[in-house]
Write a protein that binds this DNA or RNA. Structure first.
Lengths: 125, 125
DNA sequence: AGACCTGGTCTATATTCGAGACCGCTCGAC
DNA sequence: GTCGAGCGGTCTCGAATATAGACCAGGTCT
């Protein structure tokens, strides 16, 4: 029993909603950065994940925090420090995500070549 | 040598551009569907990937085709059939993606619970 | 004192998405 | 033969979303 309970391919399945939230450029890069560089504060993450705006960083982090993947800790020093770290659930996920990043880096050239070929073939129309 | 050549975290790196294209709900689900159910025609994919519009399906498939991940074949029968299948590059990627889908299905409940807890904690403000 | 870093929020604009109409073609039912 | 449906798309429109950048109240550095 409980096989087939959840299905990411089904539009109305809760797991699909979760998948749609996680299958996002910034969320994935944030988790990968936390996995690769350890706990980081807000501005470290912003520098680590090149090109992310403060708004999207805040938004994605809140989402990850809400889903129990990331822990946000405020150290009440002066000035206060805010540090983000992976929770066990987030670490599990990040371990599936990191290979994806490495694969992309390793195959970027092949994909770029395919794109040029495709574009050349379709320019002749 | 050639270590550090590509870096998905760098905003201007070609691999990051590729990553941004692939780290997309529909592209990932399409690759996963092709990996799980084998070659499929356009309308089969549309039914398989619940909730995708024809527009986004076309767009994502073109993108995957352009990057050399997916092969589009038109069988000149009457009426013509259009079949999409994974190329080796796409199959490699799909093999990293599928675990992600299964993980999401397996941990959806935990994440939903975390969300409820988070929302409850922040409603008391 | 003036400039910068911190962790954000807010707004205005640009981009993207989803819903649905439309298309020409072919098939099966009536 | 004609009505409706399925095929593989394209086009358009309004709504949702992303990006860029200003702003903020503190504290630190020079």
């Amino acid at each position: 029993m409980r096989e087939e309970e959840f299905d990411v391919f089904a539009q109305l399945c809760p797991s699909r909603e979760m998948f749609a939230d996680l299958a996002d450029k910034w969320s994935m890069l944030i988790l990968m950065s936390l996995a690769a560089c350890g706990p980081q504060r807000f501005s470290e993450l912003q520098r680590g994940v090149g090109g992310v705006s403060r708004k999207m960083l805040t938004q994605s982090l809140r989402n990850l925090e809400r889903s129990g993947l990331v822990l946000r800790t405020v150290f009440p020093e002066t000035p206060p420090r805010v540090v983000y770290d992976l929770l066990p659930l987030g670490r599990e996920l990040a371990e599936l995500l990191s290979p994806l990043g490495r694969w992309t880096e390793g195959h970027a050239l092949q994909m770029l070549a395919a794109r040029e070929e495709f574009d050349a073939a379709h320019a002749r129309d």
